[in-house]
Structures are given as C-alpha cells and as structure tokens.
C-alpha cells in the first residue's frame, strides 16, 4: 500500500501523465486539422451533458478523446492530492519552509483552476448562435426571456454578406453598431442594456455576447422577411467563471513571488559573481 501511495504521489507519475497529456493534445491538433474542427466547435456551443446527448456519428472519436482527457486529468488530480498531502505538508510541518509552503498553495490553486475549467463544462447554460431580428424574443432557462429591442446598424448593410475578418473599419463601424436587449422573467421586465463587439452585457448573471450582425432580407436571397439587419448572440451563464477569474491571477502572483523568493540559488553565493548579469563588456 505504501508503495502505491509513494508512486501516486511521485514526480515520476506526474511526468508520465504530463507526457501523456502532451500526446493527447497533440492528437487534438491533428484532429482539428483533419476534419474534426466542426465537432470541437459543437462542443463549444453546448454544455458537456447536452453535447454528449446530441452528438452522433463523427463525434465518437472526439468522445473517446474527451473521456481520455478526463481520465488523465483525474489521474493528475489524484497525483496532485497525494503529492500535496504526502510531501508538501510533511516538509512544511517539519521545516516551515516558506517557498515550499507557497508552492503547496500554488498547486492547490492550480487544481482549483482546472476544476473551474471542468466545472464550466457542466454548470450554467449556453445558447450559441441565437439569431434575432428587431422585436423578436428568445426563451431561456428559469422563465427568463430576452428581447432584441433595437438593432442599431449605421453602415451599409450589404457589407454583412462579407466575413467579419474581411470588413474594414471604413465599411463597418465597430464602435457605433450595437444591439439593445431587454431581459424578462415570467414576462416581467427586469433590465435592459446594449452590447457591441467585445463589450458583452451581463444581466442577472446571464451574459449576452454579440457574435455578429446578419444581413437584411434585401441583401440575401430567400432571407427572412426583414429590411433591417439582424443579430447573432451567444447567451450564457457560467457560475464557474468567477472562481477561475479570481484564482488564476492569484496563481500567477504566487509563482512570481516564489520566483523572487528563490531567485538566488541557496548555497551558491561564493560563485555568484561569475555567471551574474550586468551586460556584456
């Protein structure tokens, strides 16, 4: 049993898992380049339970990839827990070594950040590519409803037939074009606000993100019966994001502080003059 615990908490086990993860992500890069890009995109559009229930056919391989990733991540989590408990706590309890204690804290925060990433796949909700025209509504979870009050588009709408990357600031004003939405619950008005590119709107913990505008019917053959531009929104609620956005900078600060604490190599002061910095002479 002790041998097993020693192995689970060992750096050798971490190394094997990290190497396996590198192979796993390299495989994902190959998959995205060989026809599975759309399948990964579908994963982005749904929470994982929804995606697993609706995905078929081509996604079998990606399912295998995802479950493999979860298995490796779980093993790495076990390694992290055992390593923290078996090594760091013992060391810090005995010596009260500050860098080691800080390193323990960094590892714990890292584990929580990864948990937050996985949590974001499971909790809240996502509605990708919600297409709305002015005056239209979309029903959300928990009796919420969003309505596009106004789609303010100041440019020539024919530019919307082009991909967004091809648009220049002369033909598409990224600042002036926006969408005004209102949020309702049980048909009672709650709040309203406007959103534009890279300026999402958060109402009642629900984020409304502007993905694009859609051209009016006059610009598209067989398009919807409207003379003004429409919009595509990504509507999401992700309770895990606050955890990650709080802990991630703490992890960075922790590593930076650890670097400052351990910048000088212990027991090497007598040789420090030789390889020190200070510019070329």
């Amino acid at each position: 049993m002790k041998k097993l615990i020693d192995f689970l908490s060992s750096l050798h086990f971490s190394l094997w898992l990290l190497t396996l993860l590198i192979g796993w992500f390299a495989w994902a890069i190959v998959l995205t380049a060989t026809g599975y890009f759309e399948t990964f995109q579908q994963m982005n559009n749904h929470l994982m339970p929804d995606w697993l229930s609706i995905s078929h056919g081509k996604s079998t391989l990606i399912r295998f990839w995802f479950f493999g990733l979860c298995a490796i991540a779980a093993a790495l989590g076990i390694n992290l827990i055992f390593c923290s408990w078996n090594k760091f706590l013992k060391i810090t309890a005995r010596r009260m070594n500050r860098p080691a204690m800080l390193m323990l804290a960094i590892h714990v925060v890292f584990g929580l950040v990864i948990l937050g990433h996985f949590g974001s796949l499971l909790v809240g909700f996502r509605h990708a590519n919600v297409r709305l025209r002015q005056g239209e509504s979309f029903e959300l979870q928990n009796e919420y409803r969003v309505r596009a009050d106004a789609i303010h588009f100041v440019n020539d709408a024919s530019v919307l037939t082009k991909p967004i990357k091809a648009m220049t600031s002369d033909e598409f004003s990224f600042e002036s074009n926006f969408v005004q939405v209102s949020l309702y619950k049980n048909d009672l008005f709650l709040k309203s606000g406007r959103l534009s590119f890279l300026k999402p709107l958060v109402l009642d913990g629900i984020q409304f993100t502007l993905k694009n505008f859609t051209p009016p019917a006059s610009a598209v053959k067989n398009g919807p019966n409207s003379s003004s531009a429409g919009t595509i929104l990504f509507i999401s609620r992700n309770p895990a994001k606050n955890l990650v956005f709080t802990l991630f900078p703490l992890m960075i600060i922790g590593i930076a502080v650890y670097l400052v604490m351990t910048w000088k190599q212990p027991g090497y002061q007598q040789h420090a003059s030789r390889p020190s910095g200070g510019g070329t002479k």
Binding site: L198, P200, I235
Partner: peptide, 11 residues
C-alpha cells in the same frame, strides 16, 4: 469571455 461568451474554447 468578451468576444465569444466563454473564457475558454476547444480550438
């Protein structure tokens, strides 16, 4: 998060 509505994407 600001551009796509989530803080990370499979890509």
């Amino acid at each position: 998060q600001q551009g796509w509505g989530d803080f990370w994407h499979w890509s």
